[in-house]
Nucleic acid binder design. Structure first.
Lengths: 136, 136
DNA sequence: CGGGATCCATGTGGATACTG
DNA sequence: CAGTATCCACATGGATCCCG
């Protein structure tokens, strides 16, 4: 069975990679690292809600996948810097439109949610009936 | 604190949307729906490893966010078809480069993993030392 | 066929403490 | 500073049964 090497087959490596990419934090971290190298705790402070455990795990995964490099400088206390590899920059570039999309369509999604939930969170504008047409 | 409305703040709605998008199944489902409308069990069969419960939840979320429409036809047995909204098509278009990236960079990631893990999964080519230079 | 409801295994992540 | 290790709570998801 499943002879076809399509993206939707569980055994397809593309799926493995998509699963990594589609991690909650990966997009944010790669976004930051595309600006400049970051230190561990600086990243941690910047991304709210990201625990040190998860950041550690995520960075290790990203390093393993060849997206980031880890450079430790023997200062006191030790300084560790994370930066993108060429492969990581390539991925970050592919990911950035996503962040942009989220920013620009944020309101539309929230409006859709408010409508779906039956309540009027955003200014009720055309409200119920008009909104139906929008999604038809 | 956190007066800045940046993407990395926990309260930023963009983060909420990114979290949705960065779901394991969303990319795959939107990819399929960008081809044509799909019926529930057809989607379920196509995406291996996706349980009916999770598919149901995911579709409901996508519908709530205004990405897909749900159309039930009173046939026997009932037929339900899911299709993209304009907003969903917009998102799917933004997402598709990601799938493409995964396909084209799959091998590079696997090579990086093999190297990181210290074993030689892919043909050992330049092996250890040469690979260091690649990621430097 | 297209789900909803329930029960339950387990993985994921938070909090805390400790190390180099 | 930059983590690792441990413990534990909670959410997620699979399996199963049932209904329109």
């Amino acid at each position: 069975m499943d002879q076809q090497p399509n993206t939707y087959a569980a055994n397809c490596p593309t799926r493995q990679i998509l699963d990594r990419i589609a991690d909650k934090w990966t997009v944010l971290i790669l976004g930051l690292l595309s600006e400049r190298p970051w230190r561990f705790n600086a990243l941690r402070r910047e991304v709210q809600g990201l625990s040190q455990k998860v950041l550690s795990q995520t960075l290790k995964s990203l390093e393993r996948d060849g997206f980031v490099t880890r450079s430790a400088f023997p200062t006191v206390p030790v300084t560790v810097e994370y930066a993108l590899t060429p492969l990581g920059r390539s991925l970050a570039a592919t990911l950035s439109p996503l962040t942009h999309w989220a920013e620009t369509h944020m309101e539309a999604v929230e409006a859709a949610r408010a409508q779906f939930d039956g309540r009027a969170a955003t200014p009720p504008r055309v409200a119920a009936d008009g909104a139906r047409a929008f999604l038809a």
